[in-house]
Design a protein around this nucleic acid. Structure first.
Length: 437
RNA sequence: GCGGCUGUAGCUCAGGGGUAGAGCACCUGGUUGUGAUCCAGGACGUCGCGGGUUCAAAUCCCGUCAGUCGCCCCA
């Protein structure tokens, strides 16, 4: 018989893994709802064209795409959610009340070589706010993400938001002599500042029309890392760029301050993020040590809904994957002790004649909404059964046995250790009365 | 697509040309009811796979596959 393994880059979620996943998803969902976002979902696969129209044909090699046997349409498992979101917004056009505040926790699929923090199937929390062209929307979206991180135990000393603003950087680069038509190439170079040898960096910068002075300023700009409270005039002085270029950053900073999250944030003008359709604010959330990939990435994408056939719609959102976040949380012990739901009651049968009464007791507990389990072993050895109840993490064990003759059962508190003999009739009340966990 | 490292029991690993090992976990029983660091017993492997060398390969050689980490890319 052939043996099968989970496909490359996918994961099996055993109960303990599922408990961790639920913890993360619960934090995401709670933060979203608490900040006024509503949950949506879309199809797991879409028309291939939905992705190529936005990202170009080159994206196809990164997708799991397919055609139904005998069919004519090309599909792809969704590699991200934003196109689906933009499609959904475009489909309802202007009929949706603005701003639109939606979140989703979809699975995604990418045909990449797996490595640390990157798998072929993963879950990504998406939070998006559309139809409000104001920095307060950027701040609201970002603070939603940070609320989830906070709920999971991460704090500003452990996770940092690196922020930039494409309009500000574009103005700065223009002031340094970069032609408008070279702007996208300049962003790409900015993104690769730490990966290229200095000579190559200088050469590519020269191709953009930058002289030696401009190159030096470009390099300084690319490496700007400052507290978010810094005076833009300081950055202007350091890079030789007129301070007016950094104007968009001031309004963003004020919005972040009002949202109460500026403690998490710093400027990093080297943050670019790849896509051409990004506009305005861009940010990444990183572990402060910086060893892992980005925990989350977000941006403004004011043109995308229109690209999908909808009305011009401003938009800002972010995605946060479960893989890197899980690694960061695990490294800090923040996932220790998470386990699947544990039963309130564990019913054990201590006597052959108690088998059917025990079954009835179990059913009555469950019908009353109590999480109750039983042993499926044949043994009547109470010690072994008690051990099983303990390993199951049950709060109480109910021994159904000889006391039944008097209409009684024994209830043992597995946390505290005490036990009492009570009438069978009062058992359900005991566990629904509110004085038990 | 390219490179490093690792593949031996369910898990963690030892062994290193001559009959396949340990700990943990798991299962059963301990004759009559209380959470095992108790006792006794049990199941467990084509040593990733294929080829080569050898009287003999888990062990040495070659290849291959898988996992993992990195490069490329990263929505």
């Amino acid at each position: 018989m052939p043996t099968f393994k989970a496909p490359k880059g996918t994961r099996d979620f055993y109960p303990e893994d599922m408990a961790v996943r639920r913890r993360i998803e619960d934090a995401w969902r709670s933060a979203s709802i608490g900040h006024g976002f509503e949950e949506i979902e879309g199809p797991t696969f879409e028309h291939l064209g939905l992705y190529t129209v936005k990202s170009g044909d080159g994206i196809v090699s990164e997708l799991f795409s397919f055609r139904r046997s005998g069919g004519t349409d090309d599909y792809a498992l969704r590699p991200e959610f934003t196109p689906t979101l933009a499609r959904m917004v475009a489909a309802r056009g202007g009929s949706l009340p603005r701003p639109i505040k939606w979140f989703a926790i979809p699975s995604h699929f990418r045909a990449e070589r797996p490595q640390r923090g990157r798998l072929r199937e993963f879950f990504q929390w998406n939070v998006d706010m559309l139809g409000l062209d104001d920095p307060s929307a950027d701040a609201e979206v970002l603070s939603t993400g940070l609320a989830a991180l906070d709920a999971l135990g991460l704090r500003p000393d452990v996770a940092t938001v690196r922020l930039s603003h494409r309009d500000a950087v574009a103005s700065a680069l223009e002031a340094l002599g970069v032609e408008r038509e070279s702007m996208y190439a300049a962003f790409q170079l900015l993104d690769r500042r730490d990966k290229l040898p200095p000579e190559e960096f200088a050469k590519k910068a020269g191709d953009l029309g930058l002289g030696p002075d401009g190159l030096a300023a470009f390099d300084r700009l690319a490496r700007i890392r400052r507290p978010i409270t810094v005076d833009p005039a300081e950055i202007a002085a350091e890079t030789g760029v007129p301070v007016a270029a950094f104007e968009p950053m001031v309004a963003l900073r004020e919005a972040l301050d009002d949202a109460g999250v500026s403690e998490w944030c710093e400027w990093d003008l080297g943050i670019v993020r790849g896509l051409a359709y990004y506009t305005g604010t861009v940010f990444e959330v990183h572990e402060t040590g910086g060893g892992e990939r980005a925990i989350a990435g977000g941006c403004r994408y004011d043109g995308l809904v229109e690209l999908m056939g909808g009305p011009p719609t401003s938009a800002v959102g972010f995605g946060m994957g479960d893989v890197v976040l899980g690694l960061v949380l695990r490294d800090r012990g923040l996932l220790d002790g998470i386990e699947p739901p544990r039963p309130t009651v564990f019913v054990l049968v201590a006597d052959d004649v108690a088998e059917r009464p025990a079954a009835r007791i179990l059913a009555s507990l469950r019908q009353a909404g109590v999480h109750a389990r039983r042993s499926y072993r044949a043994t009547r050895n109470v010690g072994k059964l008690m051990s099983e109840a303990s390993r199951a993490g049950a709060g109480h064990a109910v021994i159904v046995g000889r006391e039944l003759e008097e209409g009684m059962v024994v209830v043992k508190d597995l946390r505290g250790g005490g036990q009492e003999t009570i009438p069978v009739d009062s058992l359900v009340t005991m566990f629904t009365g509110g004085d038990d966990e």
